[in-house]
Amino acid sequence: MRRLIGVVAELNRFPVKSMAGEELAEAEVRWSGLRGDREYGFVKADSLRRFPWFTGRDHSALLRYRAASAGDYGSAGLPVEVATPDGRRLGVGDPALAKELAAAAGGPVQLIQLSRGTYDSMPVSLVTRATLAVIDAAHGASLDPRRFRINIVIDSAERDIEWRGRSIEFGLDGARLAVVRPIERCAMITIDPDTAGRDASVMRTVARQFGNEVGEYASVLRQGPVRIGDEVYLVDEAAAPVAITSELAR
């Protein structure tokens, strides 16, 4: 049994970890998430910490660098071009970009490419507009959804928390996801995606009124496309952890 719960309103891919991303009309969802999502990331080369990534938490202005695909996915992965805040366009592997980021980091940085994605936790993130509206109301002002860096935004009258532990499907031939657990938020949501200015009140709202959770993480149960305008269905079965593990192992 399937129940219609909404339609896909936005698709976002972030080719470089912590940089601004790109809006897509269609995304290919693989076992490792949206193809090309977070495929690249910069690490602090002299860091031995468990979290070596150079991110907006270190340098807010990193979010003003916009990463976008510069061609089709090929044997070398996703070709990516980065638009810098001052209007230049550089290939993601251009030494000039690494030099600029190293100056901001206060030490050397190194580009890493991982086909499975440089995720902190899980491969796909989703949220509903109903959830975003509740957060706006609690905050007393409209928050730019880009603060939450979500892959799939669903236009639904339901909050995504209602789907946790269940499966959802997209369209007639699309991907199937297991909605697994909430996304715990960090200081990244305090950063304005346009100006890189910080607003600590955003974190206070999310932490105090929503247990520091916005949106849901999902695992991939079936590969397939997701398109803007696709109908989204709640599948009448639980997203059992055993099923998730077996599918992801393929």
Rank of each mutant, 00 (worst) to 15 (best):
Q209A: 13
Y73N: 06
I168C: 03
I161K: 08
I150T: 14
T128Q: 04
A96C: 03
R147L: 05
G107I: 06
V202A: 02
I150K: 08
A187V: 15
G140V: 08
A178N: 10
P145F: 06
M203A: 14
S142Y: 05
F148W: 11
A200F: 12
V80F: 09
A96D: 13
L78A: 08
A83W: 03
I191Y: 01
V109E: 05
S75L: 13
P123S: 09
S201K: 12
A103Y: 07
V92S: 05
L172H: 14
A76G: 11
E184P: 00
R204Q: 14
P79C: 10
D173E: 15
A137F: 02
S75H: 13
E162D: 13
D194P: 00
P193N: 03
I161S: 15
V134N: 11
D86E: 15
V180Y: 07
F210W: 06
V134I: 06
Q209K: 14
D136W: 04
A157F: 04
R185M: 02
H139I: 01
R176T: 15
R185T: 03
V202L: 03
S201R: 14
N151E: 08
D120L: 10
G197V: 01
V179H: 01
R88E: 14
P193E: 00
S115A: 15
L143F: 09
V202W: 03
L90F: 10
P79K: 12
G117E: 10
I152R: 03
A76V: 05
R185D: 03
G140Y: 12
A96S: 14
R159C: 14
G106H: 07
S201F: 02
D120V: 02
P95M: 12
R204T: 14
R166S: 11
L111W: 09
V206Q: 03
